[in-house]
Nucleic acid binder design. Sequence first.
DNA 1: ACGAACGGAAAGCTACGACTTACCGTTGCT
DNA 2: AGCAACGGTAAGTCGTAGCTTTCCGTTCGT
Lengths: 107, 107
Amino acid sequence: MATYQPDDGWDALGDPTRRAIVACLAERPRAVRELADELPISRPAVSQHLKVLKEAGLVTDRAVGTRRVYRLNPAGVAALRDQLETFWHRALDGYQDVAEQPTEETS
Amino acid sequence: MATYQPDDGWDALGDPTRRAIVACLAERPRAVRELADELPISRPAVSQHLKVLKEAGLVTDRAVGTRRVYRLNPAGVAALRDQLETFWHRALDGYQDVAEQPTEETS
DNA sequence: ACGAACGGAAAGCTACGACTTACCGTTGCT
DNA sequence: AGCAACGGTAAGTCGTAGCTTTCCGTTCGT
């Protein structure tokens, strides 16, 4: 069942390597070995990242023979997207009261 | 001008405290002091986080008297949301070729 | 039944990032 | 002019996250 903490998804995507894995899996499902071959890190490292991504609900895995094929979990990705959507809406809705002009340059 | 690295946004949201700040700013713009009062960390720590968020293009700031008011940057949030949207679409589009049935429980 | 490939788990090292306190410049009020 | 509030910067400490190597269990092929 797995009771996902919403924040876990953000923590998971906080790491560049895990984002690379997610990007890879967005193209097509892959086995651990395949992922390790395309990344500059060892296979166990990939395994550890996949564990984090799985616990965050961002990927799922299937056992296929001796290999384990990971794929992106659309539901997990959608959850994060929706959260950003909420922030985005609130920022737009609530902010139009104040006239938009920075009084000083922001660098 | 600021040439934002797309990944910076994810790195920025990778930290729980920064996510709390973003959530705060989603409600309404706030000064540094106000944010520090609502968070369990010191004011300089908040400043450091705001710097990261600003460099990532997720917030903007205005000088108002001696205070500096930060607000969410809808464009920055939208950029990340769109990226997730892409992943989500690709996962849905490309995966329907294979029949969806995990051969083994995934824990 | 043996050997090879796959992949998860444990142990250990290292580097970085999130804090703190202290300091300093700026703005505004009286 | 002087004092107080605000907030960015610097310096230093500490925990943890990411990596590696090693080891072990499982599954397939011959």
